[in-house]
């Protein structure tokens, strides 16, 4: 049944999607085909599919560690942005642009920046009792503005015809594509490792178990002596590290430079991915592949059918709605009860 809910949610989303397309005057079947099948019918499509799934899965793995402990980091978008900024900073300004160390250094910079950006809400939550939902979200807006400042100001490429973007990263600062014709690159291995680490942590480590107890039964966790602040720190730092690395991989992969818009909303979509995946490593892989398809499909129908790419966000929302609703039928048994009519009046005790 744990698997049934996501499947049911997907089916219902497809049905609602078809009705929606029909109401827009598009024949649902070809539209669904264009949305979900066509993107996967070419090598390039497959490459793009994995390319987009990779950051989603990576970030969702990090976030899920926090979500399991009821630590709500919804600012992965900001941590992603900071990771991309820090990594690009290293890539652009490292004295030796051909150094073999460049990529590893960028990796560390991206991870550190993502973690630093998440450490602020972690500190505020554990020391100052400040709600991490709001802080992580506000930090996302600040990160976006910081990126905008950099690409409009100090980091703007002087040879870039005044476009708000940085210079291109040197070749040594880029992940190698598997095939020059496609954009999929070796950064996907980072995601594979992250999924394994996440699985080890949640399913095979005592610390991971403690985190899950903190989330499922906070009082029991406190009674057992598991520190809440440890869960907060680990939860937020894991999410920040994953998002920072994802940002680094995006900058050093498909982007190759910074511009004001570097994420199509990976940080937010990854929240949904984590939920579709039931906060479980392998579930997240499936969820990420599905979500990536939604992004691809959204782009596809935007080009072929001139439908707006906002459809992706609508589908994301509907999918999450259905998923949450489907959970109800798993966790609860429905019993129909008739309202009691003419119940005898209760005598109030005096």
């Amino acid at each position: 049944m744990r698997i049934a809910a996501p499947v049911l949610a997907c089916v219902l989303t497809l049905i609602v999607g078809s009705l929606f397309f029909a109401s827009l005057g598009h024949d649902p079947l070809p539209t669904l085909y264009a949305f979900f099948i066509e993107p996967l019918s070419s090598m390039n499509g497959l490459s793009e599919w994995l390319l987009k799934a990779s950051p989603l899965i990576l970030i969702a793995c990090g976030l899920a560690i926090g979500f399991r402990a009821n630590v709500w980091n919804i600012g992965a978008e900001g941590q992603f942005t900071m990771g991309a900024i820090a990594a690009s900073g290293v890539g652009l300004f490292w004295p030796n642009p051909e150094s073999a160390l460049l990529l590893p250094l960028m990796f560390l910079a991206g991870m550190a920046a993502g973690m630093a950006w998440a450490a602020i809400p972690a500190f505020l939550r554990s020391r100052m009792n400040t709600n991490e939902i709001l802080v992580t979200l506000m930090m996302t807006y600040i990160a976006t503005l910081f990126l905008s400042y950099l690409v409009h100001g100090p980091w703007r490429d002087p040879a870039g015809f005044n476009y708000p973007q940085t210079a291109l990263l040197p070749a040594a600062a880029m992940f190698q594509s598997f095939d020059p014709a496609y954009r999929l690159n070796s950064s996907i291995f980072i995601t594979v490792v992250a999924v394994l680490l996440m699985w080890l942590f949640t399913d095979r480590s005592f610390l991971g178990y403690k985190m899950s107890v903190s989330g499922a039964a906070p009082l029991a966790a406190r009674y057992a002596g598991f520190r809440e602040s440890a869960a907060v720190w680990i939860g937020l730092l894991a999410g920040g590290a994953a998002a920072g690395i994802a940002g680094m991989a995006e900058a050093a992969g498909p982007l190759g430079q910074l511009s004001p818009q570097i994420s199509p909303g990976y940080g937010f979509a990854a929240i949904i991915v984590a939920f579709i995946g039931r906060l479980n490593a392998f579930g997240i892989v499936l969820g990420g592949l599905l979500m990536s398809l939604l992004f691809l499909g959204g782009e596809g129908v935007q080009m072929t059918l001139a439908l707006p790419s906002a459809l992706t966000r609508i589908f994301q929302g509907i999918l999450l709605f259905f998923l949450l609703a489907a959970d109800f039928f798993i966790f609860y048994r429905i019993r129909l009860v008739r309202p009691v009519k003419d119940a005898p009046a209760l005598e109030t005790a005096r």
Partner: peptide, 26 residues
């Protein structure tokens, strides 16, 4: 979602935030 289906209110609210931004953009 939150009242009839007893879902996690954080998740349901986030879903609404994403959904609303998508629908309004659409």
């Amino acid at each position: 979602l939150a009242l009839t289906f007893l879902t996690n209110q954080y998740a349901a609210g986030l879903a609404l935030a994403i959904f609303g931004s998508g629908v309004s953009a659409f």
